[in-house]
Design a protein around this nucleic acid. Structure first.
Lengths: 228, 228
DNA sequence: CGGAATCTTGAGCGGCTTCAAAACCTGTGG
DNA sequence: CCACAGGTTTTGAAGCCGCTCAAGATTCCG
């Protein structure tokens, strides 16, 4: 998809949420938001609560997840700068959040409460349209992920996830692309167990395709992961 | 969720797509649609095509699916009267359909082309809002389905799917609720292989919980499926 | 330094899938 | 009316991918 850049310069943010909205109006919309700083491991929205705020992450990253009955957490989405969540808030009588959101490291967010975003989307229908486009995008990603479970092996799924993370949240580097993620989280995003994840990554490391460190993966040879 | 009834009386259709829109305007919107009749096994939209039409199914039922690389089809959604698909059409520069839609039996649809639905959603912003709500609903269902794969057994997933189908597309009956579906399709919707599906259903039949026939399932004791 | 989180490695197992083959049902056309 | 072809369902047997469990090694951080 279109790579949403990360240019939080002077309040300008390149997010799909603002697509088609002139810079000037964008400033105004952001002006109405409340800026919020959260430290690592803070839970910003709670699964099941009625949607009351819409968030735009413009610095840091978060995980959007759901806790299963057995207490494990299933990661639904890895939020990166430019991502919006809590989109249900834009609706008249908002449904519930379908997952929880927790910061991975220190983050900065813009927050609109229900009343504000309602007023804004009245004035700028483009916001509603963007919300729909983004939601359809999430749905499409999800369908892909689901198709993957049914048709691909654990290894292929891990490869895909790594590549996508690579260019959504990866820090380019001389020797490759760095990604901050633990084996367990990577596994959850790929629907693969933690142990299998470890084994597959080890294999790739031995082959020189990637390098590993605690809570970090560096992709050296993306092309080798591509043979899905 | 809210049971979308099936009352196609005199052009009135109880669909979430028309929520909050007065009957009179609803008539007008439907008036602009092209009514289309399709016979069984007809492909109405093709995965990957650019979204050019929005559909509302008001009679019959269809499957929304995707064909995997191995040629099998993965059913994403079972469309029943009141359901809308091709929602991407409502966007300015529409993305692609993410699956194909095929009629299961004879169906009746209302169809809006891109230009029409755009004009309409300009006049009735409620349509856009409904589209967003519906899309979020699909997303939520999908998250549930996905969670199920990760946490539930094949049997539990089949039970859930049956129950949901039961009250979305089931024909109530003296002895139970009839559902028109083959083992294979039921399996696909539950992410379970055809053989396992057959075995589980047989077990339930022996227990008297359901009755089976070719391409049909009749639920006698829904409560017995509920122990998920 | 100690404790907590992360990662590794092996061994064993198990729920489902896969494969094969046959029985079955249903509509069609001779 | 019967036979046939195509789709659907059943049953058994075999196998495997990835999970589970256990235990230890490693890294990080206060």
């Amino acid at each position: 998809m279109t790579a949403s850049g990360t240019l939080p310069r002077a309040g300008i943010m390149h997010s799909k949420f603002f697509a088609g909205i002139p810079d000037h109006d964008q400033q105004l919309i952001i002006g109405i938001a409340q800026e919020r700083r959260v430290s690592a491991k803070e839970v910003v929205i709670q699964c099941g609560d009625k949607a009351s705020c819409l968030f735009l992450l413009f610095e840091g990253n978060m995980k959007y997840y759901r806790v299963t009955e057995r207490g494990e957490e299933l990661i639904l989405w890895w939020l990166t700068p430019g991502d919006v969540f809590g989109l249900a808030t834009i609706l008249k009588n908002p449904p519930r959040y379908m997952g929880s959101a927790e910061s991975k490291k220190e983050c900065k967010l813009w927050v609109w409460d229900h009343a504000s975003i309602r007023k804004l989307s009245g004035v700028y229908p483009q916001l509603s349209e963007n919300a729909l486009r983004i939601t359809l995008g999430y749905l499409a990603s999800y369908v892909d992920r689901h198709t993957g479970i049914a048709t691909k092996t654990a290894e292929q799924r891990l490869a895909n996830t790594l590549l996508q993370l690579g260019h959504r949240t990866g820090h380019a580097h001389a020797t490759g692309v760095d990604i901050d993620i633990t084996n367990e989280q990577l596994g959850s995003l790929s629907d693969v167990g933690m142990f299998t994840t470890s084994r597959v990554l080890s294999r790739w490391e031995r082959a020189g395709t990637i390098a590993k460190a605690r809570g970090k993966v560096c992709i050296h040879a993306p092309e080798r992961l591509l043979k899905d």
